[in-house]
Design a binder for these strands. Structure first.
Lengths: 157, 157
DNA sequence: CGGATATTGTATGTTGTACCGACAATGACC
DNA sequence: GGTCATTGTCGGTACAACATACAATATCCG
């Protein structure tokens, strides 16, 4: 743990020009938002043909990895509330990619499982994800990727 | 630059438990999305009293740093399209935080400038940002912050 | 046991953001 | 002077996050 920072030390060189963003460039949150936007845009392009969003792919993936998972389990892992989770589940169920079932041990819960169609879609999606990840990782070494993930994990864990 | 990765090497230890997310934990994009979500949530809490979003604060900040900036200049710096930029400008103008003016040298462009109210709001916002950033940076050393910004910059630049 | 409390899924509505296509006004270029 | 590009605007669509309220079910405890 470090002490509170009294002064903002420039962490990136200040280059005057069209792209200059001023002192806001030292705000970590700003860079996370820009990076997220860039990744989101490339993801959307990569998945335009499949008509799937980041969230939808993540849900398919997690349901495949955790058969019979309940919506709350999904919500915890993805840091979403129940209402948001349900909206995504509704969309995926409407497209026939997953099904809701009754949980045998808890009448409140519902089991989530992929359909054959959902599994096929996930298989295709994983190929696209690999392509997307390669685009993202192309600018880093393996060590940098590991370090980036470790730093990001400290934020969201 | 590195060669294409043929195999996915686990970059984070796999801990079984309630929070396990399976193999998706090795996807960089997934961590960026989660980190962005966590930062966004904390930002929203910090700014609930001011009723400002990340984007709105960023726009206020950038307009203050670049008086008479046009909407396209703002859009470039924030990686938004013109329509999205206008929606945010409309909201801020509606609240009397900034004003549009005619550009003297280009009839197509409009100048953007903060009002006194907008400058006061930005001042308050910067205090909240400092608090938010300290929350974010508390888990890192200065060197790690600098490294994180550098890595993120490679993504969004 | 039975009543309070918690959990889970659902329904509904609001907000913010992002994108698209189309359009008018203006400027730039040849 | 006539294209062509740029800028701002507008309308529509989509997604996600959140809040609130509600019903059904589980759990806990006196």
């Amino acid at each position: 743990m470090k002490s509170a920072q009294e002064t903002l030390v420039p962490t990136t060189p200040h280059v005057e020009g069209d792209e200059d963003i001023g002192e806001i460039r030292n705000i970590v949150g700003f860079h996370i938002r820009l990076a997220h936007g860039a990744v989101y845009r490339h993801f959307s392009e990569t998945f335009a043909a499949l008509d799937l969003t980041q969230k939808q792919v993540s849900v398919l993936w997690l349901v495949d990895d955790h058969p019979n998972i309940a919506q709350t389990g999904l919500a915890q892992r993805m840091r979403m509330d129940r209402a948001t989770t349900m909206a995504i589940i509704n969309r995926l169920e409407g497209r026939g990619l997953l099904v809701r079932g009754r949980s045998p041990d808890d009448g409140r819960k519902q089991t989530l499982n992929l359909t054959d169609s959902g599994r096929a879609m996930l298989g295709t999606a994983k190929v696209a994800i690999a392509e997307h990840e390669n685009w993202l990782k192309a600018r880093f070494t393996d060590a940098e990727v590991a370090h980036l993930i470790e730093l990001l994990t400290r934020i969201h864990e």
